[in-house]
Amino acid sequence: MDPKKGTTYSLSEDKKTVTFDYSFNPWDYNRAGQISIWTIADRAAWLLFLGESALEPRFLNVRLFTRCQEWELSPSFYSLVKPGTSLQASSRMLHVGKTSMTRGGEIVDSSTNEILVKGIVQDVHVSMETRRPKPFPDWIKEKYSYLLSEPRPKTVERFEDPNDTTKMFIYRVTVPPSDIDDNNHTNQKQYIRYCFNCAAVGAKQGAYPTVRGDLFKQGVRKVSVLYQKESLEGDVLTVESWEESPGTLRFQVRKGSEKLVQVTMQFFVASGSETDKSKL
């Protein structure tokens, strides 16, 4: 995912949105021939960062932790996107506060301009010594001064536990060394993978009313993630899951009694409804 040598970046007329070409690789696909939702989220978030770094290389030296991310996928994504399919990614800064920033972007089909993936990422500038938020350097405030007074865009909100916890499906995982990133904590995409694996096991066991069968053969329509606390190598995590509404699962990842991450996944259910067939 490093910038390819010779990559061409183009700017919008207001010079605030950067666009560039991208394509997925054969190794991005799972055994069902689909790109897993944690890979999609990871690539999409990195593409937003890549675009902003193309505009301002100093971002490469800014330490950021992700607070939340949300991605919505068109039904066409799973049928159109193959290894090497020509895509275009775009990235735009939406908001800059004292310690956090929010970027938005899209991945579109280069041949039709259909939006296949769209979403947002909110990152927090942190001190690696204290692991706490700290103010951005002055150059960021100056570069994005036009956004400082703008209203904060809607991001992922915290949800409450279900009233009936007896209907939860529980899944446990121990964080392996390979899931730790250069921030010395569990990488953000791994939580999405843990939750999907929880759902895949639960769906096969009939734990959810409408989300059933082999989830590796079903597409995820939308994923929302709120990161609450960190986990480290060797931590034993509990993933609590339940069906919030038809086709929608919620997950609370805990370490003991501590809440670490909340995830919501909406699946493309085989209902034939117009909602499931709609474009982004």
Rank of each mutant, 00 (worst) to 15 (best):
Thr166Gln: 09
Glu129Trp: 04
Leu64Ser: 02
Leu80Tyr: 03
Val156Thr: 04
Ser149Gly: 05
Glu70His: 10
Phe65Tyr: 11
Cys68Glu: 14
Thr130His: 04
Val124Met: 11
Ser91Met: 08
Asn113Phe: 09
Lys82Trp: 03
Leu64Met: 14
Leu87Tyr: 05
Thr174His: 01
Leu87His: 08
Pro162Trp: 05
Pro83Cys: 05
Phe77Tyr: 11
Gln69Glu: 12
Glu157His: 07
Ser91Leu: 06
Ser111Cys: 03
Val81Pro: 09
Leu73Glu: 07
Glu70Ser: 15
Phe77Arg: 05
Thr66His: 02
Thr165Val: 13
Ser79Asn: 09
Thr155Lys: 00
Lys167Tyr: 02
Val108Thr: 12
Thr85Phe: 04
Thr174Val: 15
Ser127Met: 07
Thr99Trp: 01
Ser149Ala: 14
Ser111Asp: 13
Thr174Cys: 09
Leu80Thr: 15
Pro75Thr: 07
Asn113Trp: 04
Ile170Ala: 02
Met93Ile: 13
Pro162Phe: 09
Asp161Val: 01
Lys118Asn: 08
Ser86Tyr: 00
Pro75Lys: 08
Arg158Met: 13
Ser79Phe: 02
Tyr78Asn: 07
Ser127Ala: 04
His95Gly: 01
Asp123Glu: 11
Thr85Ala: 10
Glu160Trp: 02
Lys134Ser: 12
Pro162Cys: 07
Gln69Ile: 03
Leu147Ala: 10
Gly84Pro: 06
Leu116Ile: 09
Leu147Lys: 04
Phe159Cys: 05
Asp138Gly: 06
Asp161Gly: 02
Glu72Thr: 13
Ser149Cys: 00
Val156Met: 05
Lys167Phe: 05
Ser90Asp: 13
Leu80Ala: 08
Gln88Arg: 15
Ile140Ala: 06
Val126Ser: 03
Lys134Gly: 02
Leu73Trp: 03
Ser111Gly: 01
Phe77Met: 10
Tyr146His: 15
Cys68Met: 06
Thr174Ala: 12
Lys141His: 12
Arg132Asn: 07
Ser110Tyr: 00
Val96Tyr: 02
Asn163Trp: 00
Val173Ser: 07
Gln69Trp: 12
Asn163Ser: 13
Ser74Asn: 15
Ile115Gln: 07
Val173Glu: 13
Trp139Gly: 04
Glu129Val: 13
Thr155Pro: 01
Leu64Tyr: 10
Val126Lys: 04
Thr166Ala: 12
Arg132Ser: 14
Ile140Tyr: 05
Val108Trp: 02
Arg172Ala: 05
Ile120Leu: 14
Lys118Ala: 13
Gly105Glu: 10
Asn113Pro: 00
Tyr144Val: 01
Val124Glu: 07
Thr66Asn: 09
Ser149Lys: 14
Pro133Thr: 11
Ile107Leu: 15
